[in-house]
């Protein structure tokens, strides 16, 4: 997995609440058996018209946001389906960080497995960063995972919380499965004990 340490980039404003994973990557793109190549279909139905032409006023189609690496969005980002195609599409587009007042649990978790940092901040702080994002390519937002800070283009600093284990894995690009397999003795011991206490399982 790609490491995430610091990022200074353009942020795209998406001031909608309840952005669901069907919006992020519609179902017709879930038929792939690969993880890559979904960026072109990120927010597909908002981004393209029926003839597959770009819709000019959608944020990621605007010249100043084509290189965006951060999304600033409304409450409950990533709700709905568990499809990991959503973070795959976000990552493939080039977004490494999503900032919102809150995230749906499964999406939030999926981000960390893919080198994406989701940051939940109070609404008033998201409002400041949303205004910053609206300035386009003139404003770069800086994220420092080690220090757990976001710095707006005006130099305003916000602290964010992140689970220590998730932070550790993201900063070092660690493979969860490899880490868990180091604890195989605990898993085997659990199975031995469960074979006695709950043999029907």
């Amino acid at each position: 997995m790609d490491k995430f340490t610091t990022l200074s980039g353009i942020a795209a404003p998406l001031p909608l609440i309840n952005i669901d994973t069907d919006m992020i990557i519609p179902k017709q793109f879930l038929k792939t058996i690969k993880r890559s190549g979904l960026g072109v279909n990120l927010f597909d139905e908002m981004r393209y018209d029926d003839d597959r032409n770009e819709i000019a006023d959608f944020v990621l189609n605007k010249p100043q946001y084509r290189e965006a690496e951060i999304i600033v969005a409304g409450d409950n980002f990533g709700c709905g389906s568990s499809r990991e195609h959503a973070p795959w599409a976000i990552k493939d587009f080039g977004i490494r960080c999503v900032i919102a007042p809150s995230f749906a649990d499964i999406f939030y978790n999926n981000c960390f497995k893919n080198g994406i940092l989701p940051i939940a901040l109070p609404q008033d702080q998201v409002d400041v960063l949303m205004k910053d994002a609206e300035k386009g390519s003139n404003a770069r937002i800086a994220v420092d995972l080690e220090a757990q800070t976001i710095t707006s283009s005006d130099g305003e600093v916000f602290h964010f919380d992140v689970d220590a284990f998730k932070k550790h894995c993201l900063m070092n690009g660690l493979d969860d499965i490899g880490l868990t397999m180091e604890k195989v003795a605990s898993i085997t011991a659990f199975e031995d004990q469960a074979a006695t206490s709950r043999p029907w399982v």
Binding site: S82, R83, E84, N109, K113, N114, T180, M181, I187
Partner: peptide, 21 residues
Amino acid sequence: AHGIGTSEVEHVLATQTLIQR
């Protein structure tokens, strides 16, 4: 019972566990 992403599907296939709080 709950939903998981594909990385977690792989994690469960490989280890029969999930990392959870």
